[in-house]
């Protein structure tokens, strides 16, 4: 199971990295989201994988490590705030720069319908 989990984290990370290296804003935003997923899962896994052992006292025999969970919980919310901010930044950029490039190219390609 650990190998499978690690492979998933790796794939999410690799796909995320490939997307943030694209030239337009939207793929970069999607890439960032994938990377946050990968990082959250990674951090979560530092508490080791445990089945049927939620960290609620009295609910099970053993308890999983609650600390990474607390960290990841806030990370999810902060990650959401970051996504929202980047999205608005992308919208702002498309208005100000009249294109959605992030690769240093700056053509005036206002694709107004």
């Amino acid at each position: 199971m650990e190998a499978l989990y690690a492979a998933t984290v790796g794939v999410l990370m690799a796909c995320g990295i490939y997307l943030v290296l694209r030239a337009r804003t939207f793929p970069v935003i999607m890439g960032l989201t994938l990377i946050s997923h990968a990082v959250n899962l990674f951090l979560f896994a530092t508490g080791r994988l445990a089945l049927r052992a939620p960290a609620v006292i009295g609910q099970s025999e053993t308890y999983t490590d609650p600390l990474p969970q607390a960290l990841v919980l806030t990370a999810i919310v902060i990650g959401f705030a970051m996504t929202a901010f980047v999205v608005v930044l992308a919208l702002r950029a498309v208005v100000e720069l009249r294109n959605d490039h992030v690769d240093g190219v700056d053509p005036d390609e206002d694709w107004r319908p």
């Binding site: 650990e2 690690a6 492979a7 790796g10 990370m13 080791r48 994988l49």
Partner: peptide, 13 residues
């Protein structure tokens, strides 16, 4: 990048 992250994750777990 993915390989590194995955392997570290595996090593920790």
């Amino acid at each position: 990048g993915g390989l590194g992250t995955g392997l570290v994750s595996f090593a920790i777990m």
